[in-house]
Simulated scan of single mutants.
Amino acid sequence: MRSKGARNARFDERRAELLGRLRARLTQRGAMRPTLRELATAAGCSVSTLNHYFGRRDDIVMAVFEDSGQRGQGQFQATRVAGPDFETSVRDAATLSWTVMTRHGVAGMLAMGMVEGMRDDLLGPVFIDRMFEPFVIALAERLETHVARGQMREVDTRMAALALASPLLLGALHQGELGGAKAYPLDGEAFVDHVVQGFVRAYRAD
């Protein structure tokens, strides 16, 4: 007879394995809200198995949101820590954001979250809470440090964080998930520099 702890460990291990396959299917290009049966096929299991480990389809998507938020904790933590001077600090945060979105698959995760969450009263708020807002909050905390140092003018730092994050997100989606890189390519480094310069001019303390 196996202990309860051993059973729980096996459950968590199997759930994590399924979650990885489900995340891959949900972020697959052209996925467009796969059905529960399609998710089960991608996970290599039955619908009843998915129900056992996750619940309904919405529960699966929310589990992927939660997992993605946990995976982003390193980026969020790095984003919180302000650099010594305002412009370099903003540039470092923007470059990190652009890099993880365009080179590490984060833009694909965000695109999936938007597809699943748009106009959905359940999934939309969960996507914002688990995947998007933690980055905005971390960036706002970084900016608050610069306000406290007198390097950045006093503003609503959450609004300022959104003003910095939004063009980076749109640019990453434009180039990758929307296929804009083929017909309308952007020089990523130049684009980040453009966004950073505009932000610094707008928010630097006089």
Rank of each mutant, 00 (worst) to 15 (best):
L143I: 05
P167F: 15
A160H: 06
D193A: 12
V106M: 14
R56D: 08
R130L: 14
M159E: 11
R23V: 01
R56V: 11
G198E: 13
A94I: 04
W98E: 11
F54Q: 00
D58T: 10
G113H: 02
R103T: 15
L122K: 08
G74E: 14
R23A: 03
G117W: 00
F54D: 01
G69I: 01
D193V: 12
A111G: 10
G188P: 01
L164W: 08
Q75R: 03
R119V: 07
P185M: 11
D206S: 13
M118G: 04
V106W: 02
V192Y: 00
R29T: 09
F76N: 11
E154A: 07
R119A: 08
R10F: 09
E133A: 12
T145W: 05
V64N: 00
Q77R: 12
R71C: 12
V64I: 10
G72D: 08
G55T: 03
G124E: 03
G55F: 07
Q151S: 07
A78S: 05
F11P: 05
A160I: 11
V200K: 09
E38L: 03
R14A: 10
V106G: 03
L36R: 07
Q151H: 06
F76Q: 09
F86H: 02
R21N: 08
F11D: 07
R37S: 04
V47T: 14
A140L: 08
R130Q: 15
L122A: 06
V192F: 02
I60L: 15
P84G: 05
D129Y: 14
D121K: 06
G44V: 12
K182R: 14
G180L: 12
L143A: 06
F54W: 03
L164V: 05
A42P: 04
T88V: 04
G5I: 05
A24V: 15
L178A: 08
D67K: 09
V106D: 02
A181F: 09
G83A: 15
S48P: 01
G176D: 12
A165C: 12
E116V: 08
T157E: 04
A190N: 03
M109T: 06
R142M: 11
Q175C: 07
D12Q: 13
L26S: 00
D156E: 05
M32N: 15
R56L: 10
A190H: 13
D92I: 12
D59N: 10
P84F: 08
S3V: 02
R142C: 13
F11L: 12
N8V: 14
A205H: 14
D129K: 12
G30M: 10
Q151T: 03
G113N: 05
R149A: 12
T88K: 07
E66C: 14
M159N: 07
G150C: 09
R80S: 09
P134K: 01
V64W: 00
G72A: 06
L22K: 01
T49N: 09
V147G: 09
R204W: 04
F54E: 00
V90A: 01
H194R: 10
E133K: 10
D12I: 13
V90M: 03
T88Y: 09
A140V: 11
S89Y: 03
R2W: 08
H194S: 08
Q197S: 11
L18M: 12
F135W: 14
N51D: 15
A163G: 04
L22D: 00
D85T: 13
N51K: 10
Q77A: 06
E66F: 12
G105P: 08
